[in-house]
Nucleic acid binder design. Structure first.
Lengths: 144, 144
DNA sequence: TTTGTTGCAAAGGGTTTGCAGGAGA
DNA sequence: TCTCCTGCAAACCCTTTGCAACAAA
């Protein structure tokens, strides 16, 4: 119990950042949400004394650079942020009905990409994949 | 030769839109470019008497809805538009060196998606894939 | 004490809107 | 002629910046 608060975000200092309540708040909000949030939504959910919006922007940018979060542009053209559980290559699968988003570790595109390389002459170095569908819960609701 | 101009954009009227020089200009600029362009770039390239920027925005939005173009948000967070040659499901593969973009008709993700469905419990209904790499020309330049 | 962070307010800049005039059909 | 479309200017709104005060370390 000696150092409980420090253990909640060991990564901040490891990444050379100062550990501030604002940063911990933002990370906490991202951790607590099961779907992507807009900057303003994150800001509204921050504990007690809200920080300034610029602070949220500044830190979000940094977290994305650090690989701790990812920005997603939805079909509504609004930018939202999700926490990345894995810092390795992964994709997000979002339910179009309830918004819940899960992280997909398996990529499984390697073979398809090699095929495309042969077809196009390109050397594919990077890709972005966003998946949308209906989660198990919403599917069963719909079936009723 | 009787009706050459009309045959260049038969789709406008077929889609219930009036055939205006501004619309034809925008479509022409998109057709002439082998890479995604910003709204302002499209505007600058429009023949002679430039239209107003709002007109470009309004029509681009409509063309995207019609499936004739697609908006792409690059790593630089700038929105660009590409013409879609095919109105069926496809993806874009962009060279990170020269910007040239080709359309990839083959998707080849079906099997991977079915696997993900089994893993996640989701029913996947839609996906967006953006591919980046080095085109054949830029590869050989690099090899020299 | 040093230096990174925050908050505020203001600036910025891409995008949208309202409306009157203009042009397809 | 009847609408739809365009152009202009202004409004919008999300995001960024400058700077002084503050607080981690």
């Amino acid at each position: 119990m000696a150092d409980a608060s420090a253990s909640t975000s060991p990564s901040l200092r490891a990444a050379g950042m100062r550990q501030t309540p604002q940063r911990e708040g933002i990370l906490q909000v991202l951790r607590d949400s099961d779907r992507p949030l807009t900057v303003e939504e994150i800001w509204e959910r921050m504990p007690e004394r809200r920080s300034g919006l610029p602070t949220v922007y500044r830190n979000l940018e940094r977290f994305v650079r650090e690989g701790w979060a990812e920005s997603i542009l939805g079909a509504d053209q609004i930018m939202r942020f999700v926490r990345c559980e894995s810092r390795h290559h992964h994709h997000h699968l979002q339910c179009e009905h309830c918004g819940r988003t899960v992280e997909v570790d398996a990529c499984g595109l390697d073979e398809s990409l090699r095929h495309l390389e042969a077809l196009s002459g390109f050397k594919i170095t990077r890709h972005q994949l966003q998946l949308f569908g209906l989660c198990a819960t919403c599917r069963s609701e719909k079936d009723r």
